[in-house]
Each structure stands twice: as structure tokens, then as C-alpha cells.
Nucleic acid binder design. Structure first.
Lengths: 339, 339
DNA sequence: CCCATATTTGTAAACGTTTACATCATTTGC
DNA sequence: GCAAATGATGTAAACGTTTACAAATATGGG
């Protein structure tokens, strides 16, 4: 059941069979027919393991993300897959469960030839431990491209693809300010996530630009999860001067916030406005439909993966972030504050 | 940067280095120290590609599922991952996008050594094309275990892990009947999916057992998607004798149904009750929280993967389905019908 | 019909491991 | 202290491909 058996049956050398498989135009039609028939008879399928070994390529790419359950990542994955299929890669998924991992844990995947490259849809901040130098063994950085997430300033040359999170968060905040809100709360994700910090910073700068003070009680950590956001919202609703709007660092958390607001007997948006971030596919079917910032998820996935492929092939992929455009999608969860 | 370099530097043979890595107890501590040091100095990492090739094992398992975006599968994946980590497997994900694939497309993955086995979270029905015989090349069936989905009766010996879909659907329907509903609609998934047919059959048998006729207008195809269910619901709401309850073949579709019911200005559950299936993590935070059938998703994932691992190791995994228990979770989306 | 050239095929080495077997070193029992 | 037994290490083959190079065969021009 190996190439040898096919060769024997076809009466040719194994080199010819190999050529038949990899560059058929290099073998005569008469021979091709013999080989084709021999393959049919033996039911031969090339041993991918041996092939990859010989080629020194796994044809595997690892995608590291915090949580597969998150519908946001499903969109990014779709983009990654499209390119992966084109380029002949299979995708290996590793969930971080929001844990941080050491730099080596990722780079070793490449150095030990478990995969050819890595798409990191998770925070790169743990990488900064120790000095800011990010190098793999032997001083070379393996092919890694960061998608969606922000990258620590010290590592700014690190290739990434994302929206301008600070700008987008500022626009979302400005939208609420424009509606007349003054007491706007922010539910952040994980403090460790740079992306979250960028969004928080956008929120703060928009508030400052409008001359609005931000009470420290208004900024609460939603831990990037629906449950975390529920707890955060309960705290916000218990405040003496209750916020009239809540801006959540992502839609998943916005769903949690909406649930708690409802549970408290308040109406959205009449009593409280809610704005999310990501525009996951559930945003539109929430009740009321959620105002949020849309990211071109598939495009991010595609660009990230494409850049990674070029890096794997040894091409020049440039340095630093590639910024794609976001879009504020105004739906019915945001309106003017109550009088 | 290969085992050879380490051996040279440590002044031992490559066999010793290999032994150091795979069965350290077989090498003397003095030698171990030399090797350890050499590995440290060279920054050597074993070449997984070569190792897998030599061992004839990919240590990869492919999980085939209709759609990663579906939160239901996220739970199953978690269970699969837990076992995969234990057993040293990495997971490759293939999305079918609800398309059916030929039997060979799956078996070839194993025969061509791209992976050691397959977890099929998708319908196995396309396999039935031609005769009912399911055999791979050379007459042997590669390690495949079906999770969640039903398996065609002709293929009943095929190993699978799932709940009793018909029974569970019947119980959900009985719950609605018990509340006093008589006009109960059913939004099915994809007609091609056997799982969907089982659930439909459960619904029909419960209706029949209660002496309730099922109008053919009440059974509509939701195409397994949120959008499909919205269209289906619109059709149901336009009916002259509008149903007082809708049972959806999964929660994702229930979300779509709820959205459309709301949009039509009707209240849940006062005007219409809704029941779903799966108990995805959003079920509880919907407004109102969704009555649904809970599946032990992680357990399904674990059991499926465990059975697959045994199959890969050549062990006996028995035949046919392994049934795990479901549970009707009554929340607020179901109540007595309007007078 | 022969030589030069182009095309097709074959030979054999290489990729980096693991492992059976042989060899060498060490311990144990007497 | 020696033989036997045990333990540690080395040698070399094997896994199934791909591919550089050599060899053989076909093609074309004169």
C-alpha cells in the first residue's frame, strides 16, 4: 500500500509514480495510464506523514484563541479557513480559555514542527515578561501573525491585523454623548488584554473631549464573559447615581448587561442605553437589536492568514499593524437618556 | 539542530539522545546530564514531523461539524479537547457548512495519514449513497465515531454517542401539551439530517399519543439556521389558525423564532410559547429565558473522543449508539396558551 | 540512417527519528 | 578476583517520500 507497490504493479520506478503524483506533465501519457491503473487497483493514497516529513512542511497552522464558543471568532475563523483552503493548510485550534501562555509555548509549536505558523487571536502581552525582546530559539522569530488583538508598544513591529480599537471605542462613546448621555459606564474585558485597554482608552478620551468626568465606579471589569458582565452590570445598577448608558467592550458582554438590566425591571433604551462591540450575528436579533461597532471579521481572518502564509513562504510581510476599517452600527438599544 | 547535533555535542550516539527523550529511565544519570546540557545549549526541539512519520501516527484527530459558529458545538468541542489533551491528540476542525460530503472524503483523511481518526458531529446519511455497505478502501472502516448526530438504520452498528432525540423531543412536546396547547408547530432543521427527523418523529408521536392532529402547515423547515427559522416563523404566524406554541429543533432556531414573534408584536409566552433544543449557553439569558432540552454536551464530547481513541489504539469499542441522558429544562418561554 | 538534442525514466541518497540487536561496561555472587 | 548476569550505550536499518543526477529512450535535422 505504498508507492513501492504501485510502482511494482505498474512496472515503473517509484520516482515515476512520485512524478505522476506531483508533476504529471513530466510523465508520458502511456506511462501515466499504467500508473493510474495501478493506483486504482491498489487503492493507494499517498502517505501525507511521509510526504510532509520529506518536504519539511506540516501544512498545518495553529490558531490560538481565547474561546471557541465566542461567535465573534467564528467569523474570523471563516476568513482564515477560506485562505487556508486556497493555500493548502489545515487548521489546528488551541483554546487559551483566557489563560496567558509563555512565549515559548507558541514558538515551540513551530520549532518542533508541529505546525508551520501561528495565528494569534489572543493577547500577546504575556510575551513581554522579562525583556521586551521577542525572539525564538536561535534568535529567529517564527511565523506568527496577530489578528484582532492589540500588540504591546514595545513589540509594535510585530505583524498584526486589526481595527483601530481606540478610535472605534471613541466613536461609540461619542454616539452616546451625542444622544445626550453624560453618565456613561464602561464594562471592560480582561484587564490583561491590551485590546480592552485600547477600547477603554478610546472611551476615556471621548469622555474627556466632551468635558465629561468619568467616575471610577463607572468602569468595571466584565472579564470578557457574559457572566462577568452580568455581575458588573449589577454593580452598576446599584450605584446611587446610576449610569444612563453602558458601553460594553464586546457584544457577548452586552448580552449579559441587557439581561441584567431587564431583570432589574428597566427598559432598553428608554431607561438605559446599551452599546456593544463586534457586531456578532446575534446583535441584530437581540431585543432590542444592539447598537455596536462592526468589525470586518472575515476580512481580518483572511488578511491575517494571508500575511501568515507569506511569512511561512519566507516572503516579506512588513512590520506592525495592518488597520482595517470598523463601522458603527446604530440599532435600537441606544437612544436619548431619560429626562 | 537535529538529534545528531545534540549527540555530537554530548559525545553520545543519537540512539542515546532518543532514549533520553522517550525513556529517560533507560539512560544513566551521568549521561542524562550530558544530554540535558547539550539540548539546552543547542536549543534542540525534537522534530515532530520526523517522529510522527517514524511512529506512523499523526496524533491528529479531525472533528467534522456543520458550523463552528454554533454555540452548541462549542460545548461538545470542550469535552473533545479535554480528552484530546489527556491522550496527546491535536484537533483539526473541518466545517461542512451543512453540505454533505462523500464517504471517501472522510475516510481518505485517515487512509492518507492526515489524521488518525475522525469525530463526526455531522450527519452520516450521505454515506448511504449506493449500497448500505460502509467500508473503506481495503474493506476496513477507519476509526470514526459519530457524536450527537443520528446514524442511518442500515448503519446502526456504526459507533455513536448521543441522546435519545426522539424521546427527548416527545418529552418537550408533552410538556407543551401538558400546559394545554393543542396547536403546536415544529420548526425542523435540515431535512437531510437524521437527527432532525428523529426529533420530528418524537414530536409527531407525542402529538398522536395525545390524540392531537398535526396540520402539515405546522411543520416547517428552519434549515438549521437562525435566518431559516425566522422565515419559517413568519410563515407560521401568517397561518389562519395560528399555532399557540412552537417547538424548534434547536435553540439557535428558537432564537430566530423568538425574534420574529416579538417583531410581530406578540408576547412570549402569553401569546405563543417557544421551546428549543440543546440548552446552549444563551438559552438562559434570552428574554424570556428559553425552555429547552439540555444535552450533556461536554459528556458527549468526552465519550465520543474516548471511544475514538480506543478505536485508534485498535481496541474494541463495541457497536452502535451509546445513549446519554437528556433533561427538559423548563424556563419562562413556555406557559399555558391564551384562552 | 546517424548524431545531437530533448524528453522520459531509473538509481540512489536524503530527510530525522525510533528500535532491534550487538557490543561494551558495570555490578553481583561466589 | 572471575564468570555470569545485568545494565548502558552504540550501530545500523527502517519508515515512505522527493529529487539531483545518471541513464535510457524518443525526436528531429541533416
Amino acid at each position: 500500500m505504498s508507492i513501492k507497490d504501485v510502482a511494482k504493479l505498474a512496472g515503473v520506478s517509484i520516482a515515476t509514480v512520485s512524478r505522476y503524483l506531483n508533476s504529471p506533465e513530466a510523465v508520458r501519457e502511456k506511462t501515466r495510464k499504467k500508473v493510474r491503473e495501478a493506483i486504482r487497483q491498489t487503492g493507494y493514497a499517498p502517505n501525507t506523514l511521509a510526504r510532509n516529513f520529506r518536504r519539511g512542511k506540516t501544512s498545518l497552522v495553529v490558531v490560538v484563541l481565547p474561546s471557541v464558543g465566542d461567535p465573534f471568532f467564528a467569523g474570523v475563523m471563516r476568513g482564515i479557513w477560506r485562505v487556508a483552503d486556497e493555500e493548502g493548510y489545515s487548521i489546528l485550534i488551541r483554546e487559551t480559555q483566557f489563560n496567558t501562555h509563555a512565549f515559548d509555548e507558541y514558538t515551540d509549536i513551530v520549532f518542533s514542527k508541529q505546525a508551520d505558523g501561528i495565528v494569534l487571536l489572543a493577547s500577546i502581552s504575556p510575551f513581554m515578561q522579562g525583556d521586551a525582546e521577542v525572539t525564538g530559539k536561535g534568535g529567529r522569530v517564527p511565523p506568527i501573525v496577530v489578528g484582532c488583538e492589540a500588540v504591546a508598544p514595545q513589540l509594535s513591529p510585530f505583524p498584526s491585523v486589526r481595527v483601530d480599537n481606540a478610535r472605534a471605542a471613541a466613536e461609540a462613546t461619542e454616539h452616546l454623548i451625542g444622544l445626550g448621555h453624560k453618565r456613561i459606564a464602561f464594562i471592560s474585558g480582561l484587564a490583561a488584554s491590551l485590546l480592552t485597554r485600547d477600547r477603554e482608552q478610546g472611551y476615556r478620551s471621548a469622555m474627556a473631549a466632551a468635558g465629561l468626568a468619568v467616575s471610577e465606579h463607572w468602569v468595571v471589569e466584565g472579564r470578557q464573559t457574559l457572566e462577568g458582565a452580568r455581575a458588573a452590570t449589577r454593580r452598576l445598577l446599584a450605584l446611587e447615581a446610576r449610569p444612563t448608558a453602558i458601553f460594553c467592550a464586546n457584544d457577548e458582554m452586552a448580552m449579559g448587561a441587557m439581561r441584567e438590566i431587564r431583570r432589574a425591571g428597566l427598559r432598553i433604551p428608554q431607561d438605559i442605553s446599551v452599546v456593544g462591540f463586534d457586531d456578532i450575528r446575534y446583535a441584530e436579533i437581540l431585543d432590542p437589536p444592539l447598537t455596536t461597532v462592526a468589525q470586518p471579521v472575515e476580512e481580518i481572518g483572511e488578511r491575517t492568514m494571508r500575511r501568515l502564509c507569506r511569512a511561512i513562504d519566507g516572503g516579506d510581510i512588513g512590520a506592525g499593524p495592518e488597520i482595517v476599517s470598523h463601522r458603527l452600527v446604530v440599532r435600537e438599544s441606544s437612544a436619548a437618556p431619560p429626562k
